[in-house]
């Protein structure tokens, strides 16, 4: 299941309640060339809506918020060497971290792909 936040994060959740988190293609375009991603520590606990990561371009730094609460079980270490993956494949190889969800019910408050597309279009 793929969900979105109004702050331009996405979360892709598997049947066993693991979520992969990244920023949307719209967000990476707004940022420009990504030069650095600060990731959470594996094992740390995140609350929905709390700051989880920071993504930086040359001239801007943006916080990335946890779309759902849970424990961080993996981070995309490849971004340290190659942050450009966020630009080239934001929804795939440019993922940030994976969490084990505390409460899949939290996802109900997020946007569907269609709702997110409408949200982005309304910004213009």
């Amino acid at each position: 299941m793929l969900c979105f936040t109004r702050e331009h994060e996405w979360i892709s959740v598997t049947d066993d309640e693991e979520g992969t988190v990244g920023i949307t293609d719209y967000a990476q375009k707004q940022l420009g060339d990504v030069v650095f991603v600060e990731l959470p520590e594996v094992g740390s606990r995140l609350l929905q809506g709390a700051q989880a990561a920071v993504v930086e371009s040359v001239k801007a730094a943006s916080e990335v918020y946890a779309p759902a609460s849970g424990e961080v079980i993996a981070v995309n270490t490849a971004l340290a060497e190659d942050p450009a993956r966020v630009n080239t494949d934001a929804m795939g190889a440019g993922w940030f971290f994976k969490i084990r969800l505390d409460d899949p019910g939290e996802l109900a408050g997020l946007l569907s792909e269609g709702d997110y597309r409408e949200h982005v279009e309304a910004l213009h």
């Binding site: 030069v35 650095f36 930086e56 371009s57 040359v58 001239k59 801007a60 730094a61």
Partner: peptide
């Protein structure tokens, strides 16, 4: 690495 600095990062 200007994103460390106040003119971009402000309160962070």
């Amino acid at each position: 690495l200007s994103t460390r600095e106040q003119h971009i990062r402000r309160d962070k």
